[in-house]
Amino acid sequence: MISIAADLFARNGYHGTGIAELGTAVGLGRGALYHYIGSKEAVLYAISKEQVDSMNAFAEQLLDRDLEAEELLRQMARGLLRNIAEHRAEWAVFFREYTALTGERRDHVITARERYEGYWRQALDNGVRAKVLRQTPRLLVKGILGMLNYTYLWYESGGELTPDEVADMFLDALIEGIRA
């Protein structure tokens, strides 16, 4: 149900997708749909939360492995682009629509997104401590993630490059610019 909703929200927008349309797409009537999902916002939250929580768990696993700084950054970038390639609709919804969330749901997603940014900052700081990367402005993390995240708009699975190849290209350009 979540992937069907993500496809609809990615195509029509969160606000442009009605609950009746969602119910038809998943084969449930309005009453059954509300029974299973609670609200349309709950579906948006599930879509947004699942992907950012997945990337946080992935980053935590990598950070626990004590990788060299450049390899850590490379694996984080590859993991993110693989996830975006596999869940493009979900990421489109996340990036375009998470601001429609309210209250605790919105707070949770924003906190999770900030935690993920923190893992990237930690990876860069590890490289500075190891003297393989130079100190960079804190804002650079947003730029790096923007470069990687933006691929949800144009990356096509089965295209000329794999997610790992795109990640490596981006990381090579980045690391050459910040190598100590």
Score class of each variant (00 low, 15 high):
Tyr34Asn: 00
Val93Thr: 05
Glu70Met: 10
Asn126Gly: 12
Leu72Asp: 02
Ser48Pro: 05
Ile47Tyr: 01
Asn149Arg: 06
Leu153Ala: 15
Thr151Phe: 11
Leu145Ala: 02
Phe170Trp: 03
Ala5Asp: 11
Arg88Ser: 15
Tyr119His: 12
Gly177Ile: 00
Ala89Arg: 01
Val166Thr: 09
Asp164Gln: 12
Val128Arg: 07
Lys40Trp: 00
Gly118Pro: 01
Thr99Gln: 06
Arg138Met: 10
Ile4Asp: 02
Ala112Asp: 07
Ile144Cys: 02
Glu41Asn: 07
Trp91Tyr: 15
Glu176Arg: 09
Val43Tyr: 01
Gly29Trp: 04
Gly159Trp: 12
Phe95Lys: 00
Gln61His: 11
Asn149Tyr: 08
Arg134Tyr: 14
Ala42Thr: 01
Asn126Leu: 14
Gln51Leu: 05
Leu63Lys: 00
Tyr119Cys: 12
Tyr152Ser: 10
Ala32Val: 08
Pro163Thr: 10
Gly143Ala: 11
Tyr150Asn: 08
Asn83Pro: 13
Leu62His: 04
Ser39Phe: 06
Leu28Pro: 02
Glu156Leu: 14
Arg96Lys: 12
Arg179Ser: 15
Lys142Leu: 10
Tyr36Val: 00
Asn12Met: 07
Leu8Cys: 06
Arg65Phe: 03
Glu104Leu: 12
Ala20Lys: 05
Ile144Asp: 01
Ala173Leu: 08
His35Phe: 07
Leu28Gly: 04
Ile84Asp: 10
Trp91Leu: 09
Leu67Asn: 03
Leu140Arg: 00
Ala85Lys: 03
Gln61Tyr: 04
Phe95Gly: 00
Asn56Val: 13
Tyr150Pro: 01
Arg74Val: 12
Glu60Met: 03
Val128Gly: 11
Glu41Arg: 08
Leu8Phe: 04
Ile144Tyr: 00
Arg30Met: 07
Ala25Lys: 01
Tyr116Ser: 07
Arg65Ile: 00
Ile175His: 02
Tyr116Arg: 02
Arg106Thr: 00
Gly159Ile: 02
Ile47Ser: 09
Ala92Phe: 04
Asp172Glu: 13
Val166Met: 08
Met55Phe: 10
Glu70Leu: 09
Ala5Val: 06
Ala130Asn: 07
Tyr116Phe: 15
Met1Trp: 11
Phe95Glu: 07
Leu62Phe: 08
Arg179Ile: 09
Asp125Tyr: 08
Ile144Gln: 01
Thr111Gln: 05
Leu139Glu: 06
Asp172Gln: 09
Leu8Tyr: 02
Ala5Phe: 11
Asp172His: 09
Ile110Cys: 11
Phe9Asn: 05
Val26Leu: 04
Phe94Leu: 15
Thr17Arg: 05
Ser54Asn: 09
Ala173Trp: 02
Leu72Ala: 10
Leu148Lys: 01
Ala46Val: 06
Met1Tyr: 14
Gly177Leu: 07
Ile2Asp: 05
Leu145Asp: 01
Thr24Lys: 06
Lys142Met: 06
Gln61Phe: 06
Tyr34Leu: 10
Leu161Ser: 12
Ser39Pro: 01
Thr17Ala: 13
Tyr150Thr: 08
Val109Asn: 04
Pro137Asp: 10
Tyr14Arg: 04
Arg105Leu: 06
Ile110Tyr: 05
Met147Ala: 15
Ile110Gln: 06
Ile37Tyr: 09
Ser157Ala: 15
Ala123Trp: 03
Lys49Ala: 15
Ile175Pro: 14
